[in-house]
Nucleic acid binder design. Sequence first.
RNA 1: GCGCAGAUGGCGGAGUGGUCAAUCGCAUCUGACUGUAAAUCAGACGCCUUCGGGCUACGUAGGUUCAAAUCCUACUCUGCGCACCA
Length: 395
Amino acid sequence: MNNNDKTKELLTRGVDEIISLEDLEKKIKNGDKLRIKLGIDPTSPNIHLGRSIPLLKLRDFQLLGHKIVLIIGDFTGLIGDTSDKESERPMLSEETVKENLKTYIDQASKIIDMKEAEIHYNSKWLGELGYKEIGKQADVFSINDFISRDNIAKRLSEGKRVSLREVMYPLMQGYDSVVINADVEIGGTDQRFNILAGRDLQRLYGQEPQNIVMNPLIEGLDGRKMSSSYGNTINLFDTPNDMFGKLMTVADELIIKYFTMLTRVDLETIEGYKKDLADGTNPRDIKINLGRELVRMYHGEEEAESAVAYFVNTFTKKEIPTDVPEFKPASGDYNISSVLIESELVSSKGEVRRLLEQGGIKIDGEVISDASHTISAGPSGVILQKGKIHFLRII
RNA sequence: GCGCAGAUGGCGGAGUGGUCAAUCGCAUCUGACUGUAAAUCAGACGCCUUCGGGCUACGUAGGUUCAAAUCCUACUCUGCGCACCA
């Protein structure tokens, strides 16, 4: 690929909108080394595939020689951004944020080269601002702007609470851009308002406003936008089998979108897949490629192959997996209900009863429906199965 | 601060003295089917149970009643309105 093509892909792949495209193109063409900002709030311990989209874009920039500036929102995380939320987001405790922080860098470093990146914690500067300065910044914005945002307007009209603290969020995110002197900020379309605020603040402080590269949001497992609060995410640190399995349940219509935005498989190959799908290739086969590629990206080649094998064996061939965690009841009680509860496979006796009635419990492949059944684990143990995916070797 | 309305299960939201462990939707779990851990369909879905029932729950604390999610009182929280100078 020549430089022109690279730039073109940089500015279109997994990109929803760029403000301002013209200016950014000019700077790239000039060969400017740009400072590319991405803010991540440690609001959940996991980075999910939706959040990998901006990270991948960041890497695209990095590979072209630009400087990545990662802002860890240890301060903004406390306040809580509501721009992608339908309800008020609670303020997190410092402990939670710290907890989440630990794994963040690890996860992000799966995608970008951390050694080449700048990392900042915004508590460093946000914690020191006083009312005077905040007042000056706040004067740039109006409440009118804020409450005309869709989700805020919606909450207001529904009589839900909107706290004043939420209004502060865009100021903080915007000020980050000022402090690190960002040329470009990356973020999802849900971040539009916040990132635009950065431009206004940069002007206030006499800087040239940053350009904005917005990525589309991606659908999660249930077809709604991927978000931790919906519990429909695929996480970077999901186990290979989990990640692969989740990807296999993704709606067929999303295959190409996932390939385009979540991987860097070259666009020609993806075009090929698109054609295959149109020509009637079983979507499953393309999806297996998708799963393999994503597991490879985050867990490596070997894990990817074994995840494929696991899935085919367990779900297509309905075999019992070879690698099953072992469990030996410490109480010595091998009654079926007791084992299920002690192993935490099931959380209450009522649920055990239900599962037994509905045929959801199997031992070595045989449905067990008797609550008084005692498991007799031979020398090699027996396989206790709950539903389709939970296996335990009882020894 | 004053007035009005509200607070129900993981979420949304019915219920307004006994038949309410609480309609329904979402989420979840199981089964059937399937290329799939999807979709669809069916069932389940507080905890314990010797399957008779017992226990804990409808913002918090008291009270009335044979009996309260439902009535009363206080408190906490949320929304809406008022907060003028007479």
